[in-house]
């Protein structure tokens, strides 16, 4: 096993045959309940008019963003971004507010809508199979893929490989590696022969989405303190003014 500094996947939409082996593999490996999944297919299916048809699919799971919005949003810090890639979720602190689901631009985190308070309702999402990748195995979904549409490796190397593949077949691929820069970069990289939006991927800026809200959050305490100071000053000022003018302003107007 080569040394992987930053765990990542590369998905090649030209290779995926929508066989769903990856999904079955994930369900088994991670004991996912029968009515849930961490990985699914997105895409428009068959488009066009007979006999001029196209079909493309993409396998969708957590992008393991470099600047995860789920993590930024979660009030109780249930998400962690490991320095070497994986974004993980800790059910022990989750309060079930589902803000992470709103925050994730990829609609990845899922929630136990079918669980009462005795079972406990949690968020679930792809974990990057830490039990496998830290034991020298590929993630279950990647390992099983019969067409190598899913590959796993070091992020830098995969980005290189993706660009090489595009360069080798410029006619086949769209000249872009999705996830290299989107949302500040993701650890799930995608190359494709059809526009990425046809694969269900959102158009995202290169700056992380959460930059704006995080900036606002940074301003909160300073703002609160200054606002408090202003209000105190006003209070003191008004009181002093009233004293000076003998009576309360209110009573004057009465």
């Amino acid at each position: 096993m080569t040394d992987i500094k930053h765990h990542a996947y590369l998905f090649d939409a030209t290779r995926c045959i929508d066989c769903r082996a990856c999904m079955v593999a994930c369900s088994v490996e991670n004991n996912i309940e029968m009515d849930k999944t961490r990985i699914w297919v997105a895409g428009l299916g068959v488009t066009g008019e007979y006999p001029n048809l196209q079909r493309s699919t993409m396998v969708y799971h957590c992008m393991h963003c470099e600047h995860p919005d789920c993590m930024s949003a979660c009030p109780v810090g249930a998400y962690t971004k490991a320095p070497d890639g994986p974004v993980s979720y800790n059910p022990d602190v989750c309060i079930g507010c589902r803000y992470c689901m709103n925050a994730c631009p990829f609609g990845v985190p899922h929630f136990d809508y079918d669980k009462g308070i005795i079972d406990g309702a949690f968020i679930d999402k792809c974990t990057f199979c830490p039990q496998r990748i830290y034991n020298g195995q590929e993630p279950a979904c990647v390992q099983t893929c019969p067409t190598d549409a899913l590959e796993y490796g070091d992020r830098d190397e995969l980005i290189k490989r993706a660009h090489e593949r595009i360069a080798a077949h410029p006619d086949r691929y769209i000249n872009h590696v999705y996830g290299e820069h989107e949302n500040g970069g993701t650890s799930y990289l995608i190359i494709s022969h059809v526009p990425f939006k046809d694969l269900g991927l959102p158009e995202l800026p290169e700056t992380p989405i959460n930059e704006v809200s995080e900036k606002v959050m940074e301003m909160t305490i300073p703002f609160a303190l200054s606002w408090g100071a202003v209000l105190t000053a006003v209070t003191v000022g008004v009181a002093a003014y009233e004293k000076k003018n003998g009576k309360g302003k209110a009573e004057q107007t009465k």
Binding site: R20, A21, V24, V28, A140, T144, C145, P146
Partner: peptide, 26 residues
């Protein structure tokens, strides 16, 4: 049995299993 993986040494699987193979334990 909790998981099946393809045997990389086998010329028919090369480490991969198709969806049916993956589901075999069920």
């Amino acid at each position: 049995v909790v998981k099946l993986d393809g045997n990389p040494e086998h010329e028919h699987s090369r480490g991969n299993l198709c969806p049916r193979g993956q589901s075999g334990l069920m």
